[in-house]
């Protein structure tokens, strides 16, 4: 089994989650609670990575990160390195492609909040940011956990975007899913099978954790 690839995957998924959650909370709050109509448009933009083929997303990210783009050039001037085909570039791509997985559970949680609690906070002199931190977030712990787990799991399982933006550099951009693809290409079915089985167990574990988080508040049939 390619432990180096597992290391890259875990590091990528962990960092993506750490970066994405603080970004997703204000975005989700705005989407869920804004009175402005333009919120609908932004909600659609945030959901785009769900529908777009990973190759399309990867293509745009690659173009945006390349040295031909202002962003790529700025990055090269400040750090002296390129973004494309590096771990940092992969991280940027992964944050974008996992955006809906972090935002949507939070939107659902915020939209389900009792509006009076937010109003009570405003009457007691708190700003929107203060209300978000002290009322909305503490009451949305399940949504926050779901967002974290989904983001982590989705990043581990991402393939197309990684291949487009990261390439296949061992120790830097070669993730588990790429490693499996590589093994199959090299007719090393034994390694592919082991790694695939590990991924299967991991995914099942993640989903079980996720659903047990929500189990308590579900409605069930009355006892017969």
């Amino acid at each position: 089994m390619d432990w180096q690839a597992i290391g890259v995957s875990v590091r990528l998924a962990g960092l993506t989650t750490l970066i994405l959650l603080p970004l997703a909370v204000p975005v989700a709050a705005w989407l869920a609670l804004s009175r402005r109509r333009i919120a609908v448009l932004l909600e659609a933009v945030v959901a785009l990575p769900l529908v777009l083929p990973p190759t399309v997303l990867g293509f745009y990210v690659l173009t945006a990160l390349g040295t031909a783009s202002p962003l790529g050039r700025w990055w090269q001037q400040t750090t002296g390195a390129t973004l494309a085909f590096t771990f940092s570039g992969l991280l940027v791509a992964s944050v974008l492609s996992s955006l809906p997985f972090a935002v949507q559970p939070l939107v659902a949680a915020f939209a389900g909040l009792d509006r009076r609690l937010l109003e009570a906070s405003a009457v007691l002199g708190r700003t929107r940011a203060g209300t978000l931190l002290r009322v909305a977030l503490p009451l949305s712990k399940a949504g926050l956990a779901t967002a974290a787990v989904l983001t982590f799991a989705h990043t581990v399982g991402e393939f197309g975007v990684v291949l487009m933006v990261g390439g296949n550099i061992p120790g830097a951009t070669r993730t588990v899913s790429i490693a499996i693809y590589d093994s199959v290409q090299a007719f090393d079915y034994a390694t592919a099978a082991r790694t695939s089985a590990a991924m299967l167990v991991f995914s099942l574990l993640v989903l079980t954790t996720l659903y047990s988080l929500r189990r308590g508040r579900r409605t069930r049939w009355p006892r017969p």
Partner: peptide, 20 residues
């Protein structure tokens, strides 16, 4: 003037206490 600057006390019909 936004609500938070009016310095009013408001008692909601169903109390709206923060459950957490």
């Amino acid at each position: 003037v936004p609500t938070r600057r009016r310095r009013v006390g408001y008692l909601f019909q169903d109390h709206a206490l923060f459950p957490h």
